[in-house]
Each structure stands twice: as C-alpha cells, then as structure tokens.
C-alpha cells in the first residue's frame, strides 16, 4: 500500500483490521438529536437578495450534473453535457457546472461533448452502485474509465465489509482504487443511507480520508435517504478535524435528493459555517444532482425579474 505521509499521520503504525478497529473506536461519537438541532438552526439562516444571487451561481459552478440510469444513451449524455456547459442559453453570465457525472460506458461521449470547455468528466466506477464484486474488477474498471477520459472517479465503499467490521478491507480497496486513478480525482461514496448511524458516517469519513479520498461523498442516489444535512454536517466536521490533524484538505460532495435552490443554499450555509470560505469553491465542494439545475436557474431569474417563474421557460436536456 502506498499512502501519502501526511494522511498516514493519524493512523496506527502497523495497519491490521484490529489496529484499524481500535483507531476507529477513538473517533468521537456523534449525537444524532443534537446534529439534527444544529442543522435545523442553520437552516433558518436567511440570506439577502444579492448574496443569494451570488450563492446560486456558486451552486451551479459546484454542480456535478448527473445522469445514472439504465436507459442512458449517448444522445442523452451529449444533450446533458451541452446543458452543463451552458446551463442557460439566454443568460451568458450563468457559469458552467463543475462536471458531468455518468456511467463508465458513457464517458467517451461526455468527454467529447465537454472537451475544451473546462467542464470535467466524472464517472462512477467500482461497479456502482452496489460495488458487490471482487476488488480486482473494481480496480480494472477504474483504470478503464480513467483511460476513457474521466477526470474524476466516484467510487463506492464496500458497505458490506464496513458493516461486518472488516474496516481493513474497506480501507485497502480505497487505497487500491486511488492507485488506479492515477491523476484522476477520487471521490469516495460512503452511502450514508446504508450506514444508517452518524457514528458510522463519521468513522467511514475518517477511514476514506486516511485511505486517500480527494473528496468524500454522501450517496449514490440509489438508496433512500440519499444526501441529508445531518450526514453532511458530520462529514464536514470530520473533514475539518482531519485537516487540523494532518494538514490535508479533503473535498465534500453531497449527492442525491438535492432538488431545489433552497436545498442547495442550505448545504452551502452548513459548509460555510463548518469549514468557512476556504471550502467555498468547486475545488472543494460539489453538489451531485440531476434535477437541481433548473430550479436554481429559475430562482436566479426570479431574483433578476421579480416574477415567479414557470418551468416552460427553461431547457430540459
């Protein structure tokens, strides 16, 4: 295993499942009720008009515009990519999204569609969403996807191994996928809806960061609940403490279930209050979403015109 020296600083000297288990037990526990109260209180923060317009544009620039369906086709991916590059054809001031996120087979089409635009191609890998195959196949798939032109890899952790207490396997798989990524950025999906407890979320966050995650991500979007504010807050706190302990910055990506501009702003508020301005950029924060974009565009238009908007006036790709 190769680990970057600073990340390793928090880990036990000799890595076995047993040392890793005791290390994870030292991760602080999380009280679910208090977390819920905290996010509820942050959700009452209200933002002035001009700042909201700024925040909504920022939200677009942080978006991983996603399609992950069995029925995805090159045509769908190309259309979505075009929307990603220019979300609102009538308003050139609207930024491009950060990335398009697609299944491995769709990577070449996405690559071609966004080439030269600055929009990144992200692909899910490691036999998303379940990840129920041998690690060899996961590594192989990751290599192929990177070769096909993905800039970013969204992998899933081995939840079965995590829930059965085989933390070493979870850790090792992340390390090996990270190796396979080469220069591509690795986002590690914890699937918080399956981990269920916030204690698990916090431990899995630490495990993923120590193993080499560039980003930690809440969900595949295929499990309910997907992203939630409490899970996001706990992950952000884990990122903050990891940064304090190792000096390594890790990014955050809530994904799934974020459908309205109001939701997006709530996530940004929690981000801002927990990690501050340093993280308020697409380099460190992404929002994974398929249907959020148009709602954000509608809110921007409403702020500009003072008229509530109709979906008829926004392109659907």
């Amino acid at each position: 295993m190769t680990l970057t020296p600073t990340r390793q600083a928090i880990l036990p000297d000799r890595l076995t499942n047993s040392t890793l288990t005791s290390f994870l037990r030292s991760v602080p526990s999380v009280d679910e009720v208090a977390v819920a109260e905290r996010v509820a209180s942050l959700s009452t923060r209200s933002i002035k008009r001009e700042s909201k317009a700024h925040a909504l544009r920022m939200a677009i620039s942080m978006m991983d515009l996603t399609t992950l369906e069995g029925m995805d086709t090159p045509g769908k991916v190309i259309q979505m990519s075009s929307k990603a590059v220019r979300p609102d054809p009538t308003d050139p001031s609207i930024p491009s999204v950060a990335a398009v996120c697609v299944y491995p087979a769709m990577v070449p089409y996405a690559r071609q569609a966004v080439e030269g635009t600055g929009v990144k191609v992200a692909s899910v890998a490691t036999y998303f969403p379940s990840g129920q195959v041998d690690i060899g196949l996961k590594v192989e798939e990751t290599r192929q996807v990177v070769e096909a032109g993905a800039d970013e890899i969204d992998m899933v952790i081995n939840r079965g191994a995590f829930l059965s207490g085989d933390y070493f396997r979870v850790f090792d798989e992340i390390v090996r996928v990270k190796e396979a990524c080469g220069d591509a950025h690795l986002k590690v999906i914890l699937e918080t809806g399956e981990l269920q407890t916030l204690d698990n979320v916090r431990r899995a966050s630490v495990l993923a960061m120590a193993a080499g995650a560039d980003f930690i991500k809440t969900s595949t979007g295929k499990v309910s609940p997907a992203a939630t504010l409490p899970a996001t807050l706990v992950m952000l706190e884990a990122i903050r403490d990891f940064w304090a302990a190792t000096g390594v910055k890790v990014g955050m990506k809530p994904a799934g279930g974020i459908r309205t501009a109001k939701d997006a702003i709530r996530y940004l508020v929690v981000l801002n209050e927990t990690l501050g301005e340093e993280w308020m950029s697409p380099d460190w924060f992404r929002i994974g979403a398929s249907s959020l974009l148009n709602d954000v565009l509608m809110q921007i238009r409403w702020l500009e015109t003072g008229r509530y908007q109709s979906a008829d006036y926004f392109t659907k790709d």
Binding site: R240, T246, G247, V269, L275
Partner: peptide, 29 residues
C-alpha cells in the same frame, strides 16, 4: 478524531485557519 500532535508548523498554522471559518460572504443583515 483523536487529537494528534504534529511537528509540522505549517500544519499548525493552517489549523488555526480552519478552526475559525470566516463567514462574511453571505449573511448581509
């Protein structure tokens, strides 16, 4: 997470930053 001591002074200074997030950007009255 366990409090970790580190020799790296750069880390220590970043730590001060990260523990005190700035919040000016959005909550205009």
């Amino acid at each position: 997470m366990e409090p970790q001591t580190t020799e790296n002074t750069e880390v220590a200074s970043r730590k001060a930053d990260v523990l005190a997030p700035r919040i000016e950007w959005e909550y205009v009255p």
